[in-house]
Design a binder for these strands. Structure first.
Length: 296
DNA sequence: CTCCAGGTCGTTG
DNA sequence: CAACGACATGGA
């Protein structure tokens, strides 16, 4: 457990290192949050609405969780933000494996991989196909507003949880279409139905190895290698998962292959090169690539 | 108006 | 098995 102090109704982490709030939220792994100021966010996750901000004072970076109990911090947010993982160590290990990661890691040094809800990740990344991040967020917010629970308000705006498996039971394929999910509607319906039937509980998946989880997830309509990898990495704590999308394809070709390379080949290469740390490497590279800060 | 977006599916060579 | 177009929707 990371060290924290309780002040008024807030939780404060002082002098935090190897973490940046903006980078962690904006790197593309999460969709259910809103920027409310510079290094100031509303995060909706784990059936809660969190107001969190990062401040700098006297050269020290602090994190403040507004209106948060010590109990909630210890039981929910500490794990959600992955504070117990030593990112300084992970980054140095990655750089030992491969110096070519340096530019991406130096640029995106403050990313943590969030431990998010499995079902919400599944639905979110089904939505993500062939869409840009702002539109993915819009769909997640819309579905939450119609079918989730109201959690509270901030600046006069209400925030809603993403509907859980049970709340999704009433949603028909046509309902999903009305949410403007387009051709993904039958995929979302299939995913919700299969999860409701119980074969995709976190407990069951915990007992399977990576390949088995991948095969299992791909049986859901609209879930392929890429979506399944994201769900594994962000929703099941499988840090070896290495999702390869157009951005990853681009930067991996630039850094390693120098020519058009199939996604399967890239995944296989990453597995050998980065092993259990593949997911971390992927996130630094993806965020870096998406920011367009590498040539070509 | 055309093109493309954190892809996947079904159909052809 | 590799390649290719379709798929809804919205923004550039």
């Amino acid at each position: 457990m990371i060290k924290y102090i309780v002040k008024d109704n807030n939780i404060i982490i002082e002098d935090i290192h190897d973490f940046d709030l903006c980078q962690t939220l904006e790197c593309g792994q999460a969709f259910h949050f809103e920027k409310t100021g510079e290094q100031d966010y509303i995060v909706v996750a784990m059936n809660r609405m969190l107001h969190v901000a990062q401040t700098t004072a006297g050269g020290k970076v602090n994190l403040i969780f507004y209106n948060t109990s010590a109990e909630d911090f210890e039981n929910v947010w500490n794990d959600y933000f992955d504070f117990d993982t030593d990112y300084a160590f992970i980054k140095s290990e990655l750089l030992k494996m491969d110096e070519r990661l340096r530019e991406a890691i130096d640029s995106k040094w403050g990313v943590h991989i969030l431990n998010q809800d499995f079902f919400e990740m599944l639905m979110s990344f089904i939505i993500s196909q062939n869409k840009q991040i702002p539109q993915i967020k819009e769909l997640v917010f819309r579905i939450s507003k119609f079918y989730g629970k109201k959690l509270g308000e901030y600046n006069g705006k209400a925030y809603y949880s993403f509907p859980d498996v049970n709340e999704c039971e009433v949603i028909t394929e046509e309902d999903f279409r009305n949410m403007k999910t387009g051709f993904r509607a039958p995929y979302l319906y299939d995913a919700a139905k299969k999860c409701k039937e119980g074969m995709y509980s976190v407990d069951i998946l915990r007992g399977l190895n990576d390949d088995e989880v991948m095969e299992c997830l791909k049986q859901i309509k609209g879930v392929g290698e890429k979506v399944a990898s994201c769900v594994m990495l962000f929703g099941l704590g499988r840090r070896s998962a290495f999702p390869v999308d157009v951005w990853m394809k681009r930067i991996m070709e630039r850094l390693y292959f120098g020519e058009d390379t199939k996604k399967e080949v890239i995944m296989e290469f990453a597995k050998k090169r980065f092993g259990e740390l593949g997911g971390y490497a992927q996130q630094y590279l993806f965020y870096f690539a998406r920011d367009g800060k590498f040539s070509q």
